[in-house]
Each structure stands twice: as structure tokens, then as C-alpha cells.
Write a protein that binds this DNA or RNA. Sequence first.
DNA 1: CGTTAATGGATACTGCTACTATCCATCACA
DNA 2: TGTGATGGATAGTAGCAGTATCCATTAACG
Lengths: 209, 209
Amino acid sequence: MRIAELSRQSGVPVPTIKYYLREGLLPPGELTSPNQASYGEAHLRRLRLIRALIDLGQVPVARVKEILEGLDSDELPLHDQIGRAHRAITPARTPTAGTEERTAAADQVRDLIARRGWKVEPDAPALTTLIETIAALRTLDQNHLADFLDSYADAVEKFTALEVAAVTARTNPDQIAESVVIGTILGETLIASLRLLAQESISADRWKD
Amino acid sequence: MRIAELSRQSGVPVPTIKYYLREGLLPPGELTSPNQASYGEAHLRRLRLIRALIDLGQVPVARVKEILEGLDSDELPLHDQIGRAHRAITPARTPTAGTEERTAAADQVRDLIARRGWKVEPDAPALTTLIETIAALRTLDQNHLADFLDSYADAVEKFTALEVAAVTARTNPDQIAESVVIGTILGETLIASLRLLAQESISADRWKD
DNA sequence: CGTTAATGGATACTGCTACTATCCATCACA
DNA sequence: TGTGATGGATAGTAGCAGTATCCATTAACG
């Protein structure tokens, strides 16, 4: 298929597809003559993945590129694929909380991780975010939320178990990496939306009128 | 205190504070003379809240403004405060999924909500995101994740119960609205970080080396 | 009291991201 | 044979979140 057809089937405007080609998000089509290329199903799939990550996952274009490079570099261990996906959705953070709040929060997180027996690299991107968030909650006089950390972790472990089950159910090993990436990123969007709906419902019960 | 002191205590550069004042995120200080104003504890608290929403919650400045206006307009029902917070963290979505995937996803979501007895406005911002996400998962051949929707909802209800408990534990009614907003937005960051840590840990167990 | 530095307020400028627009020399196809 | 699409290159745009500069005061120190 040619670019116009790819655009029609994906709903992505032709100039945007050209932009993704330029940026290396989408591999070039197969050239049939100096200025004609043909795109296949793989391009369509890839394009849909790109849009899902950008639109639903809010992943910046540059990060999408890194993720896709990971997916394409076959034989990159799954654990590293996950690492890429995590980095893609964790904005770089310059520590902003006060020193004492931050060390207290870091202690709390270290305890939590030890208590649960989690194996986490000390430079995991989510670690900084978690610590900063707890520190911020305390600075904002919201200790009550930060104090529930363990109960939150209980519920969170449920997701993760589910996701591992879902991913390992995939038989084709080629697809596992993609499933992991999609699950990591779109899974978050899914959970966040469900949470908002549940909140809205409870809030309607309690406080409406 | 004057602006330099406010900047020092909050860690926010003076020009940025001026920018927030211009944008109406921060109320003006009390003028003691035509070009001298004094800021109080309330300003410092507000500034910290702004930074938490922007840095940790990834809320755009314009949305932060809406949220704060909600907090300040006393007597706005809690349910509407929550609505504002939800809109602030739910980007506007132009439906992008194919018609049939979207109606199928919409059906699945409607069933889920009915089964759980959730009370959700039909134009809730999270509704579109949820439907689009499920449709995207199916388009990307990830039905296995979309099929777990109910189990996800189980775990999600746990959070929400926790959060309601935490918020209603607040005695001062003035602070409830603020707690609700912070809980909604920073709570999401907290959950997302925990999820990534749990994933990393399981992934290390399963796939490392 | 005089000088230096900071302040409030206004206006202008910047860097970054994610596209859009335009151009042009080919091609495909009717 | 000519009309419209294509690949590839280059340039332009809109929106966001600040930064920078300027200026007429005013505070604070020696």
C-alpha cells in the first residue's frame, strides 16, 4: 500500500506519517522506484502502536523512538525492555523536596521495599518519583495519604500479578516484548481511568447535592 | 515575607513566581507601598501545591489554575471539586479508534459499570479514555489485557475505599477539598510509581539474565 | 543621608515539542 | 499525455512554560 492508504487506514495525516519516518519512528517503506515506496501490514501495526503510546500513554515522541528501538533490537532481554518502557513514562526529576522530608520519605520507601522483598535497582526511575511524591504529600500536610503506602502496595501487587499472568499467556515469544511494553504503558492509562470512574461514583454517593 | 524569601523557601525562582502571579495561580501579595508587597504562609503553601501539581502530577498550568479557582470558590460542592481535578488530569481526546472497536469497548465498559453499580455521568472525562484504551488494546492484539478489566476494577476499588477513608478522616472541612484534589492527583502518581517498582521487581525475578 | 540592591509591574524573548506547509523532481495511471 | 500522488528536503507554525529585560520606586545598610 502507498502512503495515502496507510494514512486512511490509520487515521494519521500523511504529513505526520512523513514526520514519523523522518524521526525514525516508522521504518521506511520498500522502495519500488526512486520516489515510490510500498508499506505493509507491519507499518500499519507500528503506526497504530505509535499513536496509542503518544495519545493514550502520553509518551513523548523521542521516548517512543527509544521504546521501538528496543522492540526492534531483537534479543534485548525482556527486563531491559521493561526498563525502557519505565523510563519512557517517568519524567526526569530534579529533586525538589527539602532534604529532611526527602530522607524521611526515602527511609519509608526503603522499608517498604525490604518488607515486601521487592528487588529494585537503586537507580530505578520510579524510585525518585515515589520518594518525591511522599515527601510532597507530607510537606502539603497530607500525611494520611502517605501513611497508607502499604495498603496501596497491597492493591498494586494485584495488578502486577495479573499483568504477568496476561503476558506469560502469550505463546509467541516475539510478541511478549511488545505485550510487556503495551501492558506497562496502556495498563497505566487503564488503571488511572478506572480509578477516576470509581472515585466519581463514590463521590456522587457521598457528596452530591 | 517578600518575594525573594518566598522564592528561597519554596525553591521556585523569582521570575517563575512572577509568572504564576501574572497567570493568576498565586494571589497577589498584600501591597505595603506601590512597589512592595508582602506574602504570607498561605502563599508559601499555595506555591508548594502548585509545584506538586505541575511537577509530580504533570498538570498543565492552565489546569492548575482551574483547580485552584475551584478550591478558592468556597462552597463549591466536593463533587464538583473532584470533577475539576479529574478534568485537569484527563487530556481532551478526539476519538481515534475505529467505529466497531469503539462501540464494542463502550459496551464492555457500560456492562462493567452496571455490574458494579457505579454511578458515572455519561460525559465523565475518564470514560472516553477508558473506552479508547480498551479499543486500542484490542486493535493492537492485546485482548488478554482488556479481558482482565473486571479484575483491574476489583483492585481499583481498594484504592478508592482507602482514599475515601483517608479524606473523611480529615476533620477540618476547609481542608477536605484540598485533600480530595491532592489525593486524586498525587495519588495517581503514587500508585503509578508503586506499580512500576512492583513490575521491576517481578521482572527481575523472572527474566533477568 | 546617600548609595546599593531589591521590588512590582509590564513587555518581550526563548527553547522545546509536535507537528504542518511548501517545494520539487519524479512516477503511476487513466 | 497530462493530472495527481509520491518521496525527500527544508522551512514554518502553535502552544506551552518559563526567562530576560527594563523601569520607576523603595528598602536597607553604612
